[in-house]
Computed example of a mutant assay.
Amino acid sequence: MKVTVDEPACVAAGQCVLIAPDVFDQRDEDGIAILLTETPEPGLHDSVREAAAVCPAAAIHLAEA
Rank of each mutant, 00 (worst) to 15 (best):
V11E: 03
V48D: 04
A20V: 01
T4K: 13
I32F: 01
A20K: 08
C10S: 06
R27T: 13
A52S: 15
F24I: 09
R27W: 09
L35Y: 09
V54Y: 08
E7W: 05
F24W: 06
D28G: 13
H45L: 14
E64W: 11
I19N: 00
E29K: 05
A13P: 01
A53Q: 14
P8S: 10
A63P: 00
D28L: 12
L35F: 09
A65V: 10
A12L: 13
A33S: 14
D6K: 02
C10V: 12
I60F: 09
V48H: 02
E29N: 07
I19C: 02
M1R: 12
L36F: 07
G31T: 15
G14H: 07
Q15N: 10
D28S: 11
V5H: 01
A63K: 00
V54M: 03
D30L: 15
V11I: 14
G31S: 09
D30Q: 04
E50S: 13
A33P: 01
K2N: 14
D22R: 13
E50Q: 14
I60Y: 01
I19K: 00
T4D: 09
H45E: 14
S47I: 14
C55S: 06
S47E: 12
D22C: 08
C16T: 04
I34M: 08
E64A: 06
P8I: 08
V48Y: 07
V11C: 10
V17I: 06
E38T: 15
P8D: 10
V11Y: 01
E41W: 04
V23K: 08
C55V: 14
L62C: 02
Q26A: 15
P42Y: 10
H61N: 04
E7F: 10
D30H: 11
C16R: 00
G31L: 12
F24N: 04
C16D: 03
A33I: 11
A59T: 09
L62M: 03
L35V: 11
V54L: 06
A58W: 07
P42L: 11
L44Y: 04
A59R: 00
T4Y: 11
E29F: 14
A65M: 03
Q26T: 14
L18Q: 07
A59I: 05
C10M: 10
E38H: 11
A53L: 15
I19Q: 01
I34T: 06
P42G: 05
Q15R: 04
L36P: 04
A13K: 05
L62H: 02
T37R: 04
Q15H: 12
V5Q: 01
T39K: 02
A51Y: 05
T37K: 04
E7D: 09
V5E: 00
H61P: 02
A52I: 12
A59N: 02
P40A: 07
A9S: 06
V3G: 08
C55A: 11
E41K: 05
A57E: 06
L18G: 04
A59M: 02
C55G: 12
D6C: 09
I60D: 02
D46F: 14
D25K: 05
D30V: 13
A9P: 04
I19E: 02
Q26E: 10
I19D: 00
E7Y: 00
G43R: 03
V3Y: 10
P8E: 12
A51I: 12
P40I: 12
A59V: 07
V5D: 00
